[in-house]
Computed example of a mutant assay.
Amino acid sequence: MQPQKPPSLWVDNNHAIVRRGMVACLQQAGFVIRGESAGLAPTPVVGRLDVLLFESEGTALRRAVRLVAGSPTRLVATVRIASEQQVREIVDAGVAAVLPHDGLTPESLVANVRAVVAGAVTLPGDLLVRLLTHVTRTASLGPAALNARERSVLRLLAEGLDTRGIAEDLRFSERTVKNVVHDVLTKLNCRTRAQAVALATREGTI
């Protein structure tokens, strides 16, 4: 068996000192940094990237989403001021993690990026609360809307497990887990896993 390749990232941030600090932390943790940018210039090359870590300011979110469209590269957004509208737009766009600059530490940066590489979706508690205020309510949500298997999968999603971790915990195939997640998103009228977790948490389903 060949050794697993270390995850590769591109780091984007408008402030050189912050950017280089992130790069140093991630390199020390074993990540491969493929490039750096400020305001997504130069344009990140996503072909070999596991994660594009970018600063969500101005039009950066839309540009980052377009860059990774059709690729397996996952997005991690850093934000300076996380307004409710900004959090909503970021999560709706399918970003896997939102990291506020305020309170971001080397340890939390590395832990969140590792979780994203593993397939998880991560949101800090305060941002999850903001997301709860905008997630669409559905009349069918409740104990009768989700079966026991769907609630189990959703509960493990809320704990930060990725598809493989859920499959191992519940002794399902990864394909089954993906199908269950799809059914959950459909029933809850949610576009992303983070939305589903937020809605189910607010409604007391998990």
Rank of each mutant, 00 (worst) to 15 (best):
P3N: 12
K5D: 14
D12Y: 05
D12G: 03
N13F: 06
A16C: 06
A16F: 14
I17E: 13
G21E: 05
A24Y: 13
C25V: 04
Q27L: 04
A29R: 11
I33M: 01
G35R: 11
A38L: 02
G39T: 05
G39W: 07
L40R: 01
P42F: 02
V45S: 14
L52W: 06
L52S: 13
F54S: 01
S56H: 07
E57Y: 11
L61K: 14
R62T: 14
R66P: 03
R66Y: 11
L67V: 05
L67K: 11
A69S: 06
A69W: 14
G70Q: 07
S71E: 14
T73C: 09
V76C: 10
A77V: 08
S83Y: 04
E84H: 11
Q85F: 08
Q86Y: 13
E89A: 06
D92W: 09
G94V: 03
V95I: 07
A97T: 10
L99T: 08
H101N: 06
D102A: 15
D102Y: 01
T105P: 05
S108F: 00
L109K: 14
A115T: 04
V116E: 10
V117I: 11
A118D: 15
A120S: 15
A120C: 08
L123R: 13
P124F: 06
P124E: 04
G125R: 11
L128K: 13
V129I: 02
R130G: 09
L131V: 02
L131P: 12
T136L: 11
R137A: 04
T138N: 00
L141E: 03
A145E: 01
S152R: 07
G160R: 01
G160D: 02
D162T: 00
I166E: 04
R171D: 12
F172N: 02
R175E: 04
T186S: 01
T186L: 07
N189G: 04
A196S: 01
A198D: 08
A200F: 03
E203S: 14
